[in-house]
Design a protein around this nucleic acid. Structure first.
Lengths: 135, 135, 135, 135
DNA sequence: GTGGTCTAGACCACG
DNA sequence: GTGGTCTAGACCACA
């Protein structure tokens, strides 16, 4: 329900999805949007676990996936850092967007909606809030 | 892998999602696209389970959700039928589309992509196949 | 120390490496060598855990990596199966071999040994047992 | 990323392996290849730690292992020196090479590849750069 | 201090 | 029955 800030990161956790997935998605989002800077130190596993009132293992699982995505890197004994490679972030963002778009277009197709239909619908209903990079 | 036909319905099942969900989605899609006609008889739970080589419980769960959606109705002693109400189908289609779109726009927002970005991206990459059998 | 058989799989577990890695390596090896057949059912997580006297979570972690490798697939409520795709196994084997070889050649290079040196050395010392596909 | 020189030694450090291990391996390599001469003085622990921007404890751990290997020796009040015994270096090199080779052959065996397979593969893929600065 | 592995045991979704 | 998520808490390696 309420949002929580931990360092530069913001979290909004509920019980509708696996906790580690929510962490994963929300950290990805923070990195993709540049809310947390390249090369910045992430909160430690234990710290984040405590702040979010979760078990450290749950947080660690999310951190491991982030590293597999190439979005963070671990430095032994020092902590976890956001990657410094802008390129890696960009390419990750592209890939993920493409995956989301594919799924979405499949869904629309399964309902028999064409791209023109979708455009019309969205422009009617979401004119005021089309998302995008925050100011 | 391969597609399977059962009456007017077509199924393509894999193990990446819950089986009952795949049945649900694919029947919904068949109804939305008019591949199975309004008022037509659905295969019985047993029949479909046998054809798809699944546990009848799995098929039943999908059928229950279809009925809750108002897309089908059971007639005692006769079986399950697709609703005859075009209006019901249309409104269901609208609702589902709206839900998919919301999710999609949230995802795009989480990646910092605006509606303009999305349009540009899709038109570049999917020009030839924008899907959809317009109603 | 002693080898253990679970279905078609053989395990030899010690404490010199993470347990889940040993499971992972040994299952990979069994698949690569064809000791367990394509499409065959793997022991369930709980079953294997019990046989190896480990916690199910430890086994599950290994199974998750196997799936990420594309060597196995989960079927909900049914269990875990070795992939049926020979191609996937072959390509995995190629990739892994290439990785091992790269590492090895780097090590040899760091010791100032040329490929000719290595060949000579191996042929002198390992003539009787050059490994390879078991009879 | 970038290489760093400290006296006769060259280092290339990342975060994918324990830092002390990287120092260890790279110093061993420098000695084995004769890049640093027998009897030459090593940088002091503090000096090296400072140059590599590491904790002195980390460097010390690597130095202790080098001494255990017989590749270096401490002289009280003077610092650490590379051994003057060519024989010791040679025998160390042999041992280490043998260990690497054993591991490698085990890996290949676990993938069901024979020595002939390996030779063929390497000669196809690495013909231009077989590494090595023969002694 | 950091992350990583492991155990024991609960509870859930799926078939 | 299957795998998946989560917690609590122990112990380890690295810096």
């Amino acid at each position: 329900m309420e949002e929580q800030r931990v360092g530069s990161l913001r979290f909004r956790i509920d019980f509708s999805q696996p906790l580690y997935e929510q962490i994963l998605d929300q950290v990805r989002s923070s990195i993709a949007k540049g809310e947390i800077e390249l090369g910045e130190k992430m909160p430690s596993v234990r710290e984040l676990a405590q702040q979010l009132r979760m078990n450290p293992n749950t947080v660690m699982r999310a951190y491991q996936e982030l590293e597999r995505d190439g979005l963070t890197e671990k430095r032994r004994g020092q902590g976890t850092y956001v990657t410094s490679s802008l390129e890696r972030v960009q390419s990750f963002r592209q890939d993920l967007a493409a995956r989301y778009i594919d799924t979405f277009l499949d869904q629309m197709k399964s309902l028999g909606l064409s791209w023109a239909d979708i455009q019309k619908y969205i422009e009617q209903n979401y004119d005021s809030d089309k998302g995008g990079t925050p100011s």
